[in-house]
């Protein structure tokens, strides 16, 4: 059975249907990329999976557990799902190290030493060990985003949700972050990415889903979606992306 299973999920903000009967399966150790225009529902879909948004209809099963029946321990669920946001959302009053150790200390109940060791290892891995005692505002956007990824990884999640994590970055800072995601994919981390980086999606994804107006319009292998899309709307979207020089 797939690790994440969405069955006809619908989410409304007032009158607006942001997601409409969305069904999606993500297998363990797979990388699924969500592409589509802004406002197509990519971020909302990710937020539904860790219950930052409540779905109105349909069911979501994560790791064999239905999370949409209202009986789930939300904090326990979020412990195994890491999420990284477009705007990094680091805690500005904490140092880099404190950002990364907060979750392990307070949620995983590690002691100060264990959480510090884990955090230092992660900072080493993302190449920012020497920034451990800096505050986030002293770091570049790319560095902050890598710290945000480390903060999520420190919880040892089984699933990572990446919500347009390079969209706020200067172009020359994007590659460091993507390298890290690539490395994560190679370790077998199950990931769902909402992204505008088409060539990256093509490279790392096991499956690509094109969302349009809250509906998964087309899904398939990266080769199929990018080289031979069947849906007219997918073609139109990719055509515009190519025209903009982004693929």
């Amino acid at each position: 059975m797939s690790f994440v299973h969405l069955d006809r999920v619908t989410k409304c903000f007032g009158e607006l249907e942001v997601l409409r009967h969305v069904s999606l399966d993500v297998d363990e150790h797979n990388v699924v990329c969500l592409i589509g225009a802004s406002g197509s529902g990519k971020s909302t879909l990710l937020r539904c999976i860790n219950l930052l948004e409540k779905v109105d209809e349909g069911t979501i099963v994560v790791d064999g557990q239905e999370i949409t029946n209202g009986h789930v321990d939300v904090n326990a669920l979020r412990r195994k799902i890491g999420i990284v946001f477009q705007a990094y959302n680091l805690f500005p009053h904490m140092t880099v190290l404190e950002n990364v150790t907060l979750g392990p200390k307070k949620v995983r109940q590690l002691n100060a030493r264990q959480s510090r060791d884990t955090a230092r290892e992660l900072l080493e891995r993302i190449g920012l060990a020497e920034k451990a005692d800096e505050f986030p505002d002293r770091l570049s956007g790319g560095q902050q985003q890598r710290v945000a990824i480390a903060r999520a990884l420190a919880m040892e999640p089984k699933l990572m949700l990446l919500d347009e994590i390079t969209s706020a970055l200067d172009p020359q800072l994007v590659s460091d972050v993507l390298d890290l995601v690539r490395e994560l994919a190679s370790t077998g981390m199950t990931m769902i990415l909402a992204t505008h980086e088409m060539s990256f999606a093509r490279e790392v994804a096991d499956k690509v889903c094109f969302l349009d107006a809250g509906v998964i319009c087309e899904e398939g292998s990266p080769e199929q979606i990018f080289s031979d899309p069947t849906e007219p709307r997918t073609r139109e979207f990719l055509g515009r992306v190519i025209a903009a020089g982004r693929l």
């Binding site: 979020r78 999420i83 946001f85 959302n89 805690f91 307070k106 949620v107």
Partner: peptide, 21 residues
């Protein structure tokens, strides 16, 4: 609000998010 969201997404409870973030 994104600060609270980031804290909650780590698995911190409402009170922990208030207290630490």
């Amino acid at each position: 609000p994104s600060q609270r969201m980031a804290a909650r997404s780590l698995g911190l409870s409402y009170w922990q998010a208030m207290r630490y973030v």
